[in-house]
Design a protein around this nucleic acid. Structure first.
Length: 240
DNA sequence: AACTTATCCAACCGCCGCTAC
DNA sequence: AGTAGCGGCGGTTGGATAAGT
């Protein structure tokens, strides 16, 4: 291996130490646990191997698809990608990518490039059937999203009191307040971060070709980062 | 069976950003 | 403002194992 392998005894010592003192303060762990390992080794061993609920074994097809999608959006941000795959560690995801996906995708891309140039076909981006644009209060960013009805992700328990106003754009191009929502429910941290109440099934949205979601700047920002929010909008819409 | 090559993955290394002083 | 210490991250390494010849 890359270094000296951990023994069963060392694992037990580390596990007991974390159970007793909790995670964090890694600089103290070697001393507290009585281990002849550096803080980084202890942290890594815990995060990648000893931590409860770590999923072992091969990646399921849906996990693979999610990794590909996330990597497209985030690049080599393994910890962020792993954060959205319950039970998977950043190291697992990174290894899996390096061993399996990078080669596979590279081969596929080369093949596609050959096909493209051979056929001289122009790629056409489909026009969204219905779009949603979002504007954050702290980081201005607007983008159109394709939203298909009845295909929204499941909502898990969590919430943030971030006020949003839903504006519909009518046929004359005028904004109309459709809905005011305070509690935007989200899924976090491991399974992603989705806006829960943004639903085109809402009959009030049906009359509009476009819905704008605007946070109210006067209320400040929540603990969730807009980048996360936007990422999940990307994921959500990309999967449709 | 013996050897070589490829693949997997745990562990290490160096860097970065944050925080406290 | 500068610096040290820390946690965290991504890239890399190299031993173990599987697959191929």
């Amino acid at each position: 291996m890359g270094g000296v392998a951990w023994t069963e005894e060392e694992d037990q010592l580390l596990k007991k130490c974390i159970e007793r003192y909790g995670e964090g303060k890694w600089h103290r762990v070697p001393l507290l646990a009585g281990l002849n390992r550096c803080r980084k080794s202890c942290r890594l061993r815990w995060l990648n191997y000893l931590r409860p609920n770590i999923k072992r074994g091969s990646f399921a097809e849906d996990e693979v698809q999610l990794i590909i999608k996330l990597h497209k959006l985030l690049g080599n941000k393994w910890s962020l990608i792993a954060g959205r795959l319950p039970g998977r560690t950043a190291n697992d995801v990174k290894n899996f990518w390096n061993c399996h996906l990078s080669k596979k995708l590279c081969a596929r891309e080369t093949e596609e490039e050959c096909n493209q140039s051979a056929m001289n076909v122009e790629t056409i981006t489909p026009h969204p059937a219905r779009s949603i644009s979002m504007t954050g209060s702290t980081k201005q960013r607007t983008q159109d999203y394709h939203v298909a009805p009845n295909s929204l992700p499941a909502i898990k328990e969590s919430s943030m009191s971030m006020p949003f106003n839903f504006f519909g754009v009518d046929q004359q191009g005028h904004d109309q307040l459709v809905k005011e929502e305070r509690d935007i429910r989200v899924q976090e941290p491991a399974g992603g971060l989705f806006i829960g109440d943004l639903t085109t099934e809402d009959h009030r949205f049906g009359q509009f070709d476009e819905v704008n979601v605007l946070s109210r700047a006067d209320e400040g920002c929540s603990k969730w980062d807009w980048d996360d929010l936007m990422l999940d909008m990307d994921l959500w819409t990309d999967s449709l």
